[in-house]
Simulated scan of single mutants.
Amino acid sequence: MLLGFKTELKVNNQQRTALAKHCGVARHAWNWGLRLTKQILDHNQENSQEKIKFPSAIDLHKWLVALVKPECPWYYEVSKCAPQYALRQLSSAWKQAFKKAKKPPRFKKKGRGDSFTVDGWLYVDHFRVKVPVIGWLKTYERLPTEYQPKSFTISRQADRWFISWKIEVEPITPPKTQSVVGVDLGIKALATLSTGEVFVGAKSYRKYEKKLSRLQWLHRHKEYGSANWKKAQIQIARLHRKIANIRKDTLHKLTTYLAKNQSRIGIEDLNVSGMLANHKLAKAMADMGFYEFRRQLEYKCQLYGSELVVVDRWFPSSKTCSNCGTKKETLSLSERVFHCDHCGKKCDRDLNASINLEIAAS
């Protein structure tokens, strides 16, 4: 199976400038293509009789070469793949928007999610990679050289640069300690297993919320575009990266533990986007990373030979008694201890839900 591999680059000032130029060209091509496609959509809505065919990624690139490149000679300072892949990603984003799978694409801003993709003459050595136009880039760790990639994606987080590609990995089937386990996600505890184990979330945003607020308050008083303004931006971006890394580390450890030791895992199909609409709980839920938990668990179950069972989101795991199966009519969030009026069973609310998920996954 194919897995993503990502590592940090060890770049000098000249290479950092070249990478920033590639990101700028990719962002310019994306914004130009998005502006053009929006104009076409507006024209088709106003003139239903004289509709213009919605352009594909190939059409957009042809128009970019004919219209934009002659007026923007700095396009020739970077690899031709950077604007090509940006337009491909734009076309894919519009297809998902037309299918109602995602929201329509938005314009990109400098310094936010800067990245670009290249292909062609690529090579991976032990501690360096070769990228078109830029040349050799060093890395901090030894790289897997068994599989030569077809494309590289280079991205920036704060003041650091990262490179990623896909590698071929053989599935691993370690011995399992449990046959079936239910996992209930929550805010108080990140995950409660039907075995009684409780994993507490990192809550990294809550830990650094005051520090982040302080940095943002100081940043607003800086003169826009000044050296101190740029330094403050990097400080805020570093703290955001630290918060995200702490959260991802916690989730990686938990999902790896589950996929390696459990042969079958039952989780609930949570409506994360709908849950985040609750402004009272949105911050705490986002700090846990429910969506990232499921994403990691899905590919790790394939990697370690486990089976992931996603229980229907309307399954009343919290309201149902795990002993006799009696369902309660109402159960408020403040009730942390589940008490069954039929059989008299008392247990933790999250543990009761995880046991029900284990029964549903069996």
Rank of each mutant, 00 (worst) to 15 (best):
T195Q: 05
L297P: 07
E50V: 04
Y147I: 11
Q96E: 01
Q233D: 12
A353V: 01
F54L: 08
H240P: 01
K188V: 12
C324F: 07
L2Y: 09
K283M: 02
A361K: 13
S179E: 15
G289Y: 09
L19Y: 10
A18V: 02
A26I: 06
L64V: 10
V133L: 01
S317W: 07
I243E: 08
N323R: 12
K345D: 07
L60M: 14
E335F: 07
A360T: 02
C343T: 05
L87C: 11
C23N: 12
D59R: 03
T173G: 04
M1C: 09
N278C: 03
P175G: 00
K188Y: 06
T145Q: 14
K109Q: 14
K38H: 06
N356K: 09
S204D: 08
E50Y: 11
K109S: 14
I154R: 03
L239R: 14
L41S: 01
A227Y: 13
W229I: 06
N323K: 14
G24Q: 04
S79H: 03
D269I: 11
Q302M: 10
C72M: 15
R128L: 05
V311W: 13
C340D: 14
A284F: 01
K188E: 13
W121S: 15
K51F: 05
K222D: 11
R112C: 10
R160K: 13
V129I: 13
W63Q: 13
S115L: 03
P105R: 08
Q157K: 12
A82P: 01
A202M: 04
S56P: 05
L357A: 03
V310C: 08
D350N: 02
R214Q: 15
A158V: 01
V11R: 03
T320Q: 13
N13G: 09
T192Q: 08
D287Q: 11
T117F: 10
S79N: 11
S204L: 02
K51V: 11
K327A: 12
G135S: 02
S317F: 04
G196K: 01
E329G: 15
A259F: 00
V169E: 10
N278M: 03
A93T: 07
Q39D: 10
Y147W: 11
W161S: 06
A57I: 00
L193M: 09
G344F: 12
Q39L: 06
L276A: 05
K103V: 08
E268M: 14
W136T: 09
S151Q: 14
D119S: 14
I163N: 05
K280D: 00
L90K: 05
E358S: 11
L87V: 05
L3N: 03
